[in-house]
Design a protein around this nucleic acid. Structure first.
Lengths: 222, 222
DNA sequence: CGTAGTCTTGAGTATCCTCAACGAGGGTGG
DNA sequence: CCACCCTCGTTGAGGATACTCAAGACTACG
């Protein structure tokens, strides 16, 4: 078991579409677990994931970690200079590639070229959409719903050819911190979904969604 | 009780700072509860709250409502044309004023004027910061923490002169749907915070934060 | 003055968290 | 090759927390 899905290249979305602002980028290559940006670093950069998977997380004072955003190829993010909140960004899969732009430089580029401004705007709106989806998942009541919809979302974004086969690129711990539940609850939820026949678990990192509609209509939708 | 806080003008943040893109705006005036934008409407508009308070929410199939974003003066939001998710936006307080911009028109303006592009970018980043904060609140474990930090956030944004006196502009039901807990739990959490001496409740819509640090350091911070 | 909406509290149940233990897999060093 | 360690994943038991259903107090409003 544990077929080391992380080492294999991911079929779909393995590489982000090229992007105009990449002209101003430096490329960062990361191994699994490597920190891209410290929680209290002073730098003011924007980033875009080119390949792999990364997490943007906050560690609270009690040691609990909250993953704010899962970053897949094409995803854009910044440190939101204002706000005072500081995040740390770490690669989840090996060989994660991230483009890094100094904020001021991109701003300058955007001021000169409307196409770049447009692109940055679109990337920001994508980020908003992502965060809204995350809020919708966090707003669900039971852990089974959270995990189920997380799997659906992952299947859509991290498709393995068909959209019913999910190669989980992250650990149960990451899922737990992303959904704001405990690891044990994630594990139990997956087991419960399997026992109901909603999903089939072929190894901890290999899940097949059999009855998508059972997740979607489990006493609520949207 | 219920001193009808909603009818009184709010001292701080009652009016949003003027904004360049407002030149392209139509102004919408709403009464309390009035819908600004239907959940399945076809229009592709951007909005900015000028005065009052509004909520952007999703109603799930089971009737449960989730408030994605609380919109205060200065806040910007769109219907995120892509994504498929549809939201409905309603005014919470009476005499809420909202600027409404056709998306294409603002895009055209932004393409011509870098200052407008910059402003839209900043507004989008503000929205991202807002949503991230909301995720951090939703990620907390106990309802007491959620409600406590919600009050802190509201005190900061909706200050009544000093930042320890909060005139709740929204009902317990709105708070519940915003924090993804039941109304009863919100009520109990407020009662619990009062019994601990952390806050003082002077009427359902009037709360004073006495020991801010007790909320912030209640087994976690950030 | 009755109705509707808001807010609170109680009782019982369901869910989740914590602590704990155990198994499996991967890597390292002998 | 194997012992060892470490991380990951799962399962169990007990306690804490939140949800549901219910009822009551209060306010606003017609």
């Amino acid at each position: 078991m544990l077929p080391s899905t992380m080492e294999r290249p991911v079929p779909t979305r393995a590489q982000a579409a090229p992007c105009i602002v990449d002209s101003a980028a430096g490329i960062i290559r990361c191994r699994r677990g490597q920190e891209i940006c410290a929680q209290d670093g002073p730098v003011d950069n924007w980033y875009r994931v080119l390949k792999g998977l990364a997490r943007r997380s906050v560690v609270r004072a009690d040691g609990r970690r909250q993953i704010l955003d899962l970053l897949m190829p094409g995803d854009f993010f910044g440190r939101s200079a204002r706000g005072g909140d500081a995040f740390s960004i770490e690669a989840i899969s090996d060989d994660t590639m991230i483009a890094c732009y100094p904020r001021q430089r991109v701003e300058a580029l955007a001021d000169r070229d409307p196409r770049i401004a447009h692109e940055v705007r679109e990337l920001a709106f994508d980020a908003i959409t992502r965060l809204e989806r995350q809020i919708l998942i966090l707003g669900r009541t039971t852990a089974r719903e959270k995990v189920g919809h997380f799997l659906l979302k992952l299947a859509d974004r991290w498709a393995d050819g068909s959209t019913d086969r999910v190669n989980l690129p992250l650990s149960r711990y990451d899922i737990a911190d992303y959904l704001a539940v405990s690891v044990e609850t994630v594990s139990r939820a997956i087991t419960a979904l399997q026992e109901r026949g909603t999903i089939v678990v072929a190894g901890p990192r290999r899940i097949r969604i059999v009855h998508r509609e059972e997740i979607e209509t489990e006493e609520d939708a949207v």
